[in-house]
Design a protein around this nucleic acid. Structure first.
Lengths: 114, 114
DNA sequence: AGGGAATATTCGTGTCAAGGAATATTTATA
DNA sequence: TATAAATATTCCTTGACACGAATATTCCCT
């Protein structure tokens, strides 16, 4: 009941774990952009840019607004909140005040008595 | 100078973006474990577990301590700090007080006057 | 209406990584 | 010392996916 996990989506992680997509996201940090602009700044050809943008949208990381000819992509906050929540479940790890291998070793010793 | 990026490692993201490895990490959140324990709790065969653990160690996410027969794996705090720092660079996005598509559209309009 | 942007989609190809099975290595134990 | 436990490594196969090139679609403008 209390220890319910944030439950980070694999979709999000997999979508972010690609170099070009990561750069796209970092670009969009500073505001929405069109496909063409993104392709330009990344040195990508338009089709590849579109494909990556599709992956990112399909996974809920981006949202699109059609403005006539152009499609304007922007970041959605939700996945970042989710990632943040997940990351928070590692607070103990980050504070390094959690392990003490020694405790664990002692525990192992005990189990061996069976 | 001031706007230096956190510079999130691709290695870290790629390592996390695999279901089994993500579960491994979530397991180790609660303390160090041996290969066998990890394999058991994940329903993985030992070789696969070892391989995933190798990927995670090679990317600096885990560290190993050899204790006789066993190898005890535990999380390293650094990559989580890095991820946290990177995520923080998306604060504006998470607060949703950043875009206003309208501003961008106006900007587009201006550029079109050339 | 027609030509040209801006964007999306399809298809084929190559690469890379995860899984399975088998084997090697180290250490404990009888 | 022989055997078993714990872990790592190798080889092979298969599936996913990123890229390139080409094409389709939608919309603007003259």
């Amino acid at each position: 009941m209390s220890g319910k996990n944030p439950g980070m989506d694999m979709k999000t992680l997999r979508a972010l774990a690609e170099p070009n997509r990561k750069v796209i996201i970092e670009l969009l940090r500073d505001g929405p952009l069109t496909v063409g602009e993104i392709a330009d700044r990344l040195g990508l050809r338009q089709p590849q840019a579109s494909k990556h943008l599709k992956v990112l949208s399909d996974n809920g990381i981006l949202e699109v607004k059609a403005e006539a000819n152009r499609r304007i992509y922007k970041l959605r906050p939700e996945p970042f909140h989710a990632l943040d929540a997940w990351l928070n479940s590692f607070r103990r790890v980050m504070q390094e005040r959690f392990d003490n291998l020694d405790d664990y070793l002692r525990e192992l010793q005990n189990k061996e008595k069976s």
